[in-house]
Simulated scan of single mutants.
Amino acid sequence: MFPLVQRCCFHTPAQLRKLTIPRLPPYGKNKTTCSSLGLHHLQRGVHLISRASSLNLASVYATKLRAFHTSVPSFKKKTPKESETKLQQSMGLLKDSPKPAVYISLAGLIPFVAIPLAMVTQGTYCPQLAFAQLTYGAVTASFLGGMRWGFALPENSPAKPDWLNLANSTVPPLFAWQALLFKDITHGALMLIMALGIALHYDLSLLPTYPRWFKVLRVVGTLVMVLSLLATMAFKTASEQQPCD
């Protein structure tokens, strides 16, 4: 009975007997094989550790970039007191500016303001007066552009006679000339407003070498010119919409 149980339970099949398990060489007999196996396992461990550290660094950088791109920018709003103080400072600069510059600039704004007032007073839209205002505005824009040449050409001037100063000063006259080619006064006035805006942008931000009082004077003058042109355009549109008797 016992031999039968031993044969059934402890008998290994022939296929399993054929399988051979590789044996490690005995210690001390083949040192090169042991050292190569140890070096292989060590390199594999170092590779896994470096790979894990690189993955951790990549995840950290990804979270930082995500936080950078998804963070909502915080804009600091100006309080009314700060705006009032800046306005007072600007008016103070305008008062401290040279008197001839202030008086001549204000006198140069009279044709812009007088033409819309004349048409409103008469109650009729006059195309000749509107074209005269447009022509005077084109001359003013050309003067503002050419004034940069006179400021950059002297030897002791803070502005250099380079491409930035001289080439950009020709842009407002080109826009002003294009404004005179339109048959419709409205299109010409819009083109002239663009010319005045470009000239103001050059004087304030792109070419910031003018005195501060002159910048304030330029802002005030440009606002008056633009508002007068818009008033003429509005009066023209209102007169066209009125029914004819």
Rank of each mutant, 00 (worst) to 15 (best):
P116W: 04
K77S: 12
L93I: 12
S105A: 11
K81W: 11
P154D: 07
G92M: 07
L93T: 09
P73F: 01
K76F: 15
K64A: 10
P80M: 05
K77T: 12
M119G: 00
Q133A: 09
A152K: 02
G108Y: 04
Q88D: 09
V139S: 00
S83G: 03
T135K: 02
L65N: 05
T124H: 12
H69Y: 15
A141Q: 00
F112R: 01
A138E: 01
L106A: 13
Q133V: 00
K78E: 13
Y136I: 14
P73T: 10
K86P: 06
S105W: 01
T70V: 11
A101L: 09
L109V: 13
P80I: 05
T124Q: 10
S71G: 15
T70I: 07
E155N: 05
K76Y: 14
S90L: 04
L117N: 08
P154G: 02
S90Q: 07
L109Q: 08
A101N: 08
Y136D: 02
R148L: 10
S83D: 05
L87P: 06
T140E: 03
A138L: 08
A132Y: 06
A130S: 07
H69D: 04
Y125P: 02
T79Y: 02
F112W: 03
S105K: 00
E82G: 03
A130W: 00
L106S: 09
R148S: 08
P111G: 05
G150H: 11
S90M: 08
T124P: 01
Q88H: 11
T63N: 10
A107C: 11
S142A: 12
A118G: 06
L153S: 09
P80Q: 01
L65W: 08
I104D: 03
K86E: 15
E82C: 07
C126I: 13
L94N: 00
P111F: 04
P111M: 07
S105R: 01
R66Q: 14
G108R: 03
S83E: 06
A114K: 07
L93F: 15
A101M: 06
T85Q: 13
F143R: 02
K86L: 14
T135Q: 01
T124N: 12
L87Y: 07
K78Y: 12
D96C: 08
C126D: 10
F151E: 09
L65F: 06
S97A: 15
H69Q: 10
Y136P: 00
Q128W: 10
F151H: 11
